[in-house]
């Protein structure tokens, strides 16, 4: 017996797809600026990249607001419970057609590995990219007759952080795209992120006690 549950809200989906578009576009223009290939033309690549960057920052501001106003930020509180089980699933269970060790619910839609990865993205990689990116765009070239303390002597350190972050994000995107196919069916995760609804086997959720109770408890406080 399966039931359809509404798991990804409209803003969440909008945020996700906007973000994915922007990340792809930022990568396409960014790696051109990095001198790895040529497509848009260098000056266009810089202009587009900067524009997309500011759009991304605005999106992030909205997303932060949404996360806190809805309490969704709690989805990302890391947990070690079932972490090993989840890891075991991806390494072995998935090949034996075993069921997912954790079940998606509205209140706990991320598995422990996802929690860790996304939290890492949110508090490490994205802030690194935003801060180094803002500095990259707006740092003060050293020049005479101004307050020396505000000058940044070389863009090199900024550039190194920014490119390192970009490579990490690309690696994440590759793995992320692949893991989409590891849902109940190959397309169920993708469908869920498009429509918001996911068909989930109706059964007593073994995690419910642990996960949702905790969160419900927190929420009611």
């Amino acid at each position: 017996m399966k039931e359809k549950i509404y798991i990804y809200k409209a803003f969440e989906r909008f945020w996700h797809w906007m973000q994915s578009l922007l990340i792809f576009f930022l990568a396409a223009t960014g790696f051109e600026i990095h001198g790895m290939y040529s497509f848009f033309g260098y000056q266009n690549a810089v202009t587009y990249h900067n524009f997309a960057a500011y759009s991304f920052i605005i999106l992030i501001i909205f997303a932060i607001f949404w996360h806190f106003s809805t309490g969704e930020w709690r989805q990302y509180i890391p947990t070690t419970k079932f972490l090993k089980a989840q890891l075991n699933y991806y390494l072995f269970g998935i090949f034996r057609n075993e069921p997912h060790p954790t079940k998606k619910t509205v209140l706990s839609k991320l598995n422990p590995l996802q929690k860790l990865t996304y939290l890492g993205l949110k508090i490490l990689v994205i802030p690194t990219m935003v801060i180094s990116g803002l500095l990259y765009m707006n740092y003060r070239y050293p020049h005479e007759g101004n307050i020396e303390g505000l000058n940044i002597d070389s863009v090199e350190v900024i550039a190194i952080f920014h490119t390192a972050g970009a490579f990490l994000l690309m690696a994440f995107v590759i793995v992320h795209l692949y893991l989409i196919t590891t849902g109940e069916t190959i397309t169920s995760n993708l469908k869920a992120m498009i429509t918001g609804y996911e068909e989930i086997e109706k059964q007593e959720d073994p995690n419910k006690e642990i996960n949702s109770n905790n969160i419900e408890g927190e929420l009611t406080k």
């Binding site: 600026i33 990095h34 001198g35 260098y42 070389s154 863009v155 090199e156 550039a159 190194i160 490119t163 390192a164 970009a166 490579f167 990490l168 690309m170 690696a171 590759i174 793995v175 692949y178």
Partner: peptide, 28 residues
Amino acid sequence: DFYMPGRDYNKFVESAGIGVIFLSFVLV
């Protein structure tokens, strides 16, 4: 004597970065 975007890159970050991307592909 200076870092210029598009011309310069850090050799370590470049090879490590491309390595990580390649590795992700292979694992997938």
